[in-house]
Design a binder for these strands. Structure first.
Lengths: 151, 151
DNA sequence: TCGGCAAGTGGGAAAAAGTGGGAGAGCGTG
DNA sequence: CACGCTCTCCCACTTTTTCCCACTTGCCGA
């Protein structure tokens, strides 16, 4: 399980260093083989290869003529790019994806269970503050799984 | 499995270079023999020959008196054209298909499992932004498989 | 507080891939 | 039958990418 917030920097070539504390886990899980793709919220998702492949298997099985399924496939599978850690634990983020998430020099890497989310620092702060301040969202109905959730 | 976004350029002769990372896979799978055809969304589809042949078999078996089936056959089988990678990993896209997808110089090649989609760059960006912004699509029913999908 | 070690950072060089042009062969036309 | 045009294949040059090495910075321990 990955968790925690990390401020990370991209260098001029678009390389991002995976925080040291995750490196060993990543090596064990996938030998440094990772997959980056996009999220609807304009951030990037970073999966160990085997975890991604499982998701991909589910996605490609969806019916070809369903509009929503097609959309998801195009977004997720369509943007999924394999990346590999170099000898210093860095990954090279492909320019199209960097652009998609508006990543500049300062980014934030969020552990989310089996994956990481990568946000541009500013967007992340803005979003987070938004969620905290957000009193609405109350109007939206809570799915059953949430209703009974106890923290 | 093919995945990922790639910005590609067409040269003056209408040749498109297959991104390097896919070449070996394509060679293994079909010896560079590919099939291009059209998609309803005005993009092109690029299949390794054996994968296409399987789809074609399914298509021609569809009932001849069904209007939709006829339509699909005419579109897909009717436009399918064999192309072959040259010594530098490029394929020559036939002018009618190039025109169909409004391909200019800059195109985008999207990995989609067993095939690629080829979009004109502008159309792709417009489409993608549309999908992302689109909170509706709510009108279309969500397939059961999607309801419970966890990424 | 100073020294040593480990990790972060940046730059450079070699190799591979992209790009474009040119020549030859085949086909169509006059 | 001959000439010309177009399509295809191949070669060379330029650009990009990838890999590796060295320097700096920060942290921990003595």
């Amino acid at each position: 399980m990955f968790r925690g917030v990390n401020n990370v920097k991209l260098d001029a070539k678009g390389r991002m260093a995976i925080p040291t504390r995750y490196r060993e886990r990543v090596q064990d899980r996938c030998g440094g083989q990772l997959v980056v793709t996009v999220d609807r919220d304009h951030c990037l998702l970073l999966y160990p290869l085997p975890d991604w492949e499982e998701i991909e298997r589910k996605l490609v099985k969806l019916p070809s003529f369903n509009v929503q399924a097609r959309r998801l496939q195009r977004l997720l599978v369509g943007h999924a790019t394999e990346v590999e850690m170099d000898s210093h634990g860095r990954v090279l983020l492909p320019p199209p994806l960097r652009e998609f998430a508006a990543l500049d020099k300062s980014a934030v890497m969020i552990g989310q269970g089996n994956k990481f989310e990568i946000w541009d620092e500013e967007s992340w702060n803005a979003r987070r503050d938004g969620w905290l301040a957000d009193d609405d969202g109350q109007d939206a109905p809570l799915p059953a799984e949430l209703e009974s959730l106890s923290l």
